[in-house]
Design a protein around this nucleic acid. Structure first.
Lengths: 391, 391
DNA sequence: CGACTTTTGCTGGACACTCGACAGAAGTGG
DNA sequence: CCACTTCTGTCGAGTGTCCAGCAAAAGTCG
């Protein structure tokens, strides 16, 4: 028995009658009923009312996103954010704080455990209702093992067994991925569910890309795919990057570089992150600098568009909040430099999810695991492998 | 019944006994026997001798790559190549010719049909033994429909139903893809079967890349992924490309550009493709020009390495045959420009398959379809969907 | 309030898959 | 040449899954 067949149909959220489901699957109504029973026992499907059309009203059945919850955790270089979401990816509660990733895995994951417990309690959810946890880390991650591999800005985390640690507190699946990958997932889940080729660009202290191609996250051989920040850009040929190389995009288009450019033009920028406020305030110099950063970014994105051929590029991170200037600069270059074939149906937009992209994506990663057909069948008590008759 | 479960184990070519298969799958020997019977009836599995260990000798069973054959077709701008391969991807016969793709689909596909028939006959294979056909086209291809979409150099092919045409001659599945994608597949299948992240670069009249990431070919939203040729390179900022833009990699590093550079240095190059012979002959000017092309290519590949993070880059196409100079130029730049994390385990090599990469990959594409679990089960007479009892 | 319509839950039967056992086949070793 | 070992093919039985049909339920409409 594969309840997942029926569940996959209902997953879009639309309620359906047993007759409709039988029609769609080609199975008999009695079979559908049996599978629905299993799904309803677990709570994943619930009745949904029903309107009579002259006879006994059909009972509509629908996916119940509230059956369980997942946790989405977004850990950045200096911030941490955690959320509890339902199985539809809707955030129920969240909490963020300033937290230095360099404090090391024990202390940071300790915060995670504490906050997840608190958020669950706030929602009146028992720990047993938690189905999975997704975590984004600011560095290359080996997704299969959940370990960060040679992360530049995460001292103490190298090859640390994140899932192992977290599972001591919560006995659920723990999925770990790079933070920008997570954000790409978040953007896809929150507004662009049917987009199979999406690239998310994060412009903050650094610059990175999360690449979803052919519907799947591209992680690369070492989990470092999407590292835009250190691609060479001619205009920066004389600028030395923190990585030691010259000409890195990050060294001329990330927030610190833009702030420096504004300062060089004589405008006072107290802290790097004040760039956003300046632009919003209409400061000409700041706006020009951001637009130039957009052009620089556009150089690299033009290459990316030719290489990956996405249908949507979403710009996120701190600098994306600085209005349309960045986007305009990017568009200016991309639409000129990339092949017409690739840009013909290309959309470039700013993030809608904003600061929530990370936790949204982490939750989406967790949900993807929880609602995978095998997980559904297992939850319904169906033995997963080529199951023969039991003894 | 799922004979594909058993088949997937035998697919590596290693012969196994029934007992071993039972051990691996956890199924009863009698069940294994039943599934093997189905596979042997179709010919996909054959007995393979066996050595006694003191009792009745076990009969070893093995995948039979000769059960059926596939055709691999590589259509270039001005050449065509077709091959018949067994189910292991080994080429049995092949044939190539000069053929202009601009002659249009009817005439070109007519050639394909004719040659495939001839090659089959030469191998003493009946048309009924042909299981599938893979075709590579020199332009963007919508893989799901097998149609070329807005191809720049294929007049008359736009949205032409290639599978439909071919299937009038051969009633088998026809898989179509971009020629460089096909070559990437070919290189992967001929020597690097366990490499999940591989990029194939073709340097000929144009420059293109086939990107295999996470084990799957990346085609992008419009099927134009991997279009390296028109990525901007600073050194070419003043050179106008045939696409109308300036600074395209193709305009300074493809074969015609290299030939032009050599001519500009005062060396006579009768035809563009003579560059290879010049380099092999040890001409200093030609070698320098090729090495410079390598560096230019390296600029773009450095970006690609950061973005896609492959574990292997294979250089193919005409210019790759010109010795180590191109490779040296590429390595020079890539290992300096890309992130250490991404280059740490990166291999950059020249194509081993050479001119055969195309037909090998086309065959691999076809084989991938033929040996997919669903196809196997169908061939064994197992109804594919959630099969209930028949009436 | 009763007839009609539409949907549901239940039950028995059919089917296919899988397992375990057994007898026979095909070798080895003394 | 015979005893022993090891593997194969076949058969009956058990199990789970699915289907079709029927009576009951829960509405609407006149």
């Amino acid at each position: 028995m594969r309840p997942s067949d029926v569940f996959d149909i209902l997953r879009d959220g639309q309620p359906r009658t047993r007759a409709q489901l039988a029609e769609i699957t080609g199975l008999a109504r009695s079979t559908i009923t049996a599978r629905l029973d299993a799904l309803m026992r677990v709570g994943l499907v619930v009745p949904f009312g029903g309107v009579s059309t002259g006879g006994r009203p059909p009972s509509l059945l629908a996916f119940n996103p509230g059956a369980r919850v997942v946790a989405g955790v977004d850990l950045g270089a200096s911030h941490a954010r955690a959320a509890i979401a339902d199985l539809d990816g809707r955030i129920l509660v969240e909490r963020g704080t300033q937290l230095d990733i360099a404090l090391g895995p024990e202390r940071v994951l300790g915060w995670v455990e504490e906050v997840v417990r608190e958020l669950l309690a706030e929602q009146g959810r028992d720990v047993s209702e938690l189905a999975a946890i997704g975590i984004g880390l600011p560095g290359p991650v080996e997704h299969s093992t959940g370990r960060a591999i040679n992360p530049p800005i995460m001292p103490g985390w190298d090859r640390y067994d994140v899932p192992g640690h977290v599972q001591q507190a919560f006995a659920v699946p723990v999925l770990v991925d790079n933070d920008v990958n997570i954000m790409a997932l978040g953007e896809q889940h929150s507004q662009l569910r049917d987009v199979a080729d999406l690239v998310f660009i994060k412009v903050g202290t650094g610059i990175g890309a999360g690449i979803i191609s052919g519907g799947a996250l591209q992680r690369g051989a070492q989990g470092t795919a999407g590292d835009l920040g250190h691609v060479f850009v001619a205009r920066g040929a004389d600028v030395t990057c923190r990585c030691g190389n010259r000409g890195c995009l990050e060294a001329i288009a990330a927030v610190p570089a833009v702030a420096a450019a504004i300062r060089a033009a004589g405008v006072d920028v107290p802290a790097d992150q004040d760039v956003v406020a300046l632009v919003r305030g209409g400061d000409r110099v700041a706006m020009t600098a951001v637009r130039q950063a957009g052009r620089d970014l556009g150089e690299v994105l033009a290459a990316l568009v030719n290489l990956v051929n996405p249908s949507v590029i979403v710009i996120g991170g701190a600098l994306a909040a600085a209005g349309e200037g960045l986007l305009a600069g990017i568009r200016e270059v991309v639409y000129q430099r990339s092949l017409p074939l690739a840009t013909e149906h290309l959309h470039i937009t700013t993030s809608r999810a904003g600061e929530r992209a990370g936790v949204l994506g982490a939750a989406a990663l967790a949900i993807g695991h929880v609602l995978a057909p095998e997980s559904i069948d297992r939850a319904c008590g169906v033995p997963p492998p080529t199951a023969g008759a039991l003894i």
